[in-house]
Design a binder for these strands. Structure first.
Lengths: 232, 232
DNA sequence: TGCCGTGATCTGTGATCACAGTTAGAGTTG
DNA sequence: CAACTCTAACTGTGATCACAGATCACGGCA
């Protein structure tokens, strides 16, 4: 191994496959609620939009189907799953348990960088929500950033990955509504809960962090359920 | 709609695609530990073995890669991921949290059928382990049956699905060892913990059920870690 | 003898074609 | 005018081909 010194600086350049990029794109659409439950998706048309053949789209969709973020009906149509109120309640309970656990872990394992990221994300979202006319899609994005800043602080890659899969399922239901309805954001519940969570994590209080996240999640879930748009 | 009455009984006959069957087959190999960490897997050869073209295998593998139950190295080789001791500890912690939670939920929501399934699974595994020469692969399978009988009793499909994904990751590490080493089974720890869990769930004692599962998981994990076969 | 270039053969990835089944709509018939 | 039929255009699934990159063994050069 006798290399020019300059070559020591090159990194292995991550070769992202088209399939991965297609997955990332579709996952983002789902999490941010830009794909509504029940909406159909055609492999070929999606491939057209993304400018690739259907192969990478097939891979991305088959992954999302495995995550139950998409489903293929017996009639061979890919769509965003319709969720019954009961399924939504199950999902919410699981999210409270797991995301609450992650927040509690974060309170015990966070370091300075984590706290900085959490604080920054919290401030960004509060600033946006206090605007006279908040940009709702942007608020949804900032909300996601805050939550994952918290979960990352647990320093458990596996936990974060599980939560990401949960958001993939919950995104179409929750963020679709949130993108369209300023009410809940204006009410300021989320902002308050986020502040609670940040303080609890800074103080190392796991139980309080868990409760803050739980309140945030169930607050949003109650809002969705009260609007009564779910099947079943 | 004018049909012979007999046709009302036919179910939509789950049209299992070849991709799904390939996934089920590979997932089973992983969970039961018949695929060792680091072992390579070729799409074409796997397709040959399964008697299909590589397309269904590709779909199955891309799902498993998404679940991180398989990985494709930068050199374009598919293999079972090697797990460092640190990663294994993270996985174990997450399993204790989530599977413990599921057991606690099971204690609260189980019905008679659940109890019957749990009891049956426990007895089957105890019987096998008390044999003079237990069939280890079969014991591994019965262990899985017992655990999932417990988790199913929580009546939360989402939770069960998450746990299945966790077992997909843990299977190659844990069950590979267990299939080869009768020591732990002979020691009878698992059998004792299983009995504790069953009693706790029958009694509706969530905390005890959680502890029993946690003890079972960490007992097996400690056994693996003590053997020191992990990377990193 | 030790090392490096080189080509055959493997890998996963992507594109394209083929097919069976479904759907929607135009056309026809009563 | 309504209902039915049939066709044409779509759906996902699977197979096959093409390709760039990686691996490994063989052979030639130093």
């Amino acid at each position: 191994m006798n290399l020019p010194a300059a070559l020591n600086l090159v990194e292995p350049l991550d070769r992202q496959t088209l399939g991965e990029r297609a997955y990332a794109k579709l996952a983002d659409l789902l999490i941010s609620g830009r794909l509504a439950p029940g909406e159909k998706l055609s492999l070929r048309s999606a491939a057209d939009v993304l400018g690739v053949s259907i192969m990478p789209v097939r891979e991305a969709v088959s992954r999302l189907v495995a995550d139950k973020a998409l489903e293929v009906t017996p009639n061979r149509a890919v769509r965003v799953p319709l969720m019954s109120a009961e399924q939504f309640r199950d999902l919410t309970k699981v999210r409270i348990a797991i995301e609450g656990h992650a927040a509690a872990q974060a309170a015990q394992h966070r370091d300075k960088l984590d706290l900085a990221a959490i604080t920054g994300a919290e401030e960004a979202m509060r600033a946006e929500s206090e605007l006279p006319a908040p940009d709702l899609p942007r608020a949804v994005e900032l909300n996601k950033t805050f939550h994952f800043a918290v979960y990352e602080a647990a320093h458990s890659p596996i936990l974060v990955e599980i939560i990401r899969a949960l958001w993939l399922k919950a995104g179409p239901v929750i963020n679709l509504d949130l993108r369209a309805n300023p009410e809940r954001l204006a009410k300021g519940d989320a902002i308050r809960f986020h502040a609670d969570v940040r303080k609890a994590i800074a103080a190392g209080n796991g139980a309080a962090a868990r409760e803050g996240i739980a309140a945030d999640i169930s607050g949003a879930a109650d809002f969705i359920l009260s609007r009564g748009g779910l099947a079943g």
